[in-house]
């Protein structure tokens, strides 16, 4: 038995969530090989070789993989899949994008977004925006799985895996990369931060998100948002937390001017401690908050910043 894990990275950094996906792979059983597909990604390969529990790092370093286009990466992974029982990726945008192609090419079902491994063929995953938890058994001989990182604890990074270069290149030739418009931020990644402070429609505009920044600076927090705040153009899309945005589970989540719709809760209700600041005492967010403060955020935020 062996597991192929796709390493999530941006050609310069191995994403920390990959360490959680490897933890999930360990629970499936067997040797774990980590695939680094990218271009000029030696730093990622170095980091990958140190991931505990990984016996081999496969490296596909080629221009065809630079932007991890689903058409190209899925062909590569499908070819490699012949040697594995489980093919596993993190349920982030890259994995979500190409893995179902792999499943279809292998003629197997995919099990998405698992939060626990019961056995080598049985997995637990949230459905209906996390309002129900399904236990699903795969009947296929090969399992294609994406892992929700908040469900697993990261493995350590003091290993020493063998590195093997792959020379075959799979380029479907049907798509090309045009441009990226990436958000620059000095703050920690939403998915990796120990503290997240999010603003909703109650923030009224993008400028007012500055009120969150001072607090985020003091707490080393990432800043998130509700869909309403993103749709209204206050902040960019990559800050959205929820069913269809990012899933976070920090030690501390502070929801400010967010009502607590089920789609938002789906992205944050596994946080250890939840704080809600909302002027409406009836807002559903208070039903999941450990500490609720009924207050106008424009009074509360400056005071909170000054008292931290």
């Amino acid at each position: 038995m062996s597991v192929l894990v796709f390493a999530e990275h941006d050609n310069s950094q191995l994403k920390a969530d990959t360490l959680k996906t490897v933890a999930a792979a360990q629970a499936m059983g067997g040797d774990i090989h980590l695939l680094v597909a990218g271009h000029n990604c030696q730093a990622v390969v170095d980091a990958a070789s140190k991931v505990n529990g990984v016996t081999k790092v496969l490296v596909a370093d080629n221009a065809a993989y630079e932007h991890q286009l689903a058409e190209n990466v899925s062909l590569l992974v499908t070819e490699l899949a012949a040697d594995y029982d489980h093919i596993v990726a993190t349920a982030l945008t890259t994995g979500k994008n190409f893995m179902p192609r792999v499943a279809a090419l292998l003629d197997v079902a995919q099990i998405s977004d698992i939060i626990a491994v019961e056995s080598s063929d049985t997995f637990v995953r949230p459905i209906y925006a996390g309002n129900a938890i399904a236990t699903v058994q795969s009947l296929d001989s090969k399992k294609v799985i994406t892992v929700r990182p908040t469900g697993f604890d990261a493995v350590a990074t003091d290993g020493n895996a063998e590195v093997v270069a792959l020379d075959k290149v799979t380029d479907a030739g049907t798509s090309s990369h045009v441009s990226d418009e990436l958000s620059e931020s000095e703050r920690p990644d939403l998915g990796a931060a120990g503290v997240v402070i999010s603003g909703g429609r109650g923030m009224q505009n993008g400028d007012n998100f500055k009120l969150l920044e001072g607090i985020a600076d003091k707490l080393g927090a990432a800043i998130g948002a509700s869909r309403a705040a993103v749709d209204a153009g206050f902040v960019p899309n990559d800050m959205q937390v929820g069913q269809t945005g990012k899933i976070v589970a920090p030690d501390l989540y502070i929801a400010v001017g967010i009502s607590g719709a089920i789609q938002h809760l789906a992205g944050m209700k596994d946080s250890k401690i939840i704080v809600a600041i909302n002027k409406d005492a009836e807002a559903p967010i208070f039903q999941v908050a450990d500490y609720g403060l009924v207050a106008d955020l424009f009074d509360a935020l400056p005071e909170l910043e000054s008292k931290l």
Partner: peptide
């Protein structure tokens, strides 16, 4: 290709407390 073995409700969060002031919030945290 898959069997749904069971479906259960998610772990419910206990609703917590309402704090009266920022001072109390910071103290609790």
């Amino acid at each position: 290709r898959t069997t749904l073995l069971k479906v259960t409700p998610p772990a419910e969060r206990q609703a917590g407390i309402v704090v009266e002031s920022i001072d109390e919030l910071v103290e609790k945290l």
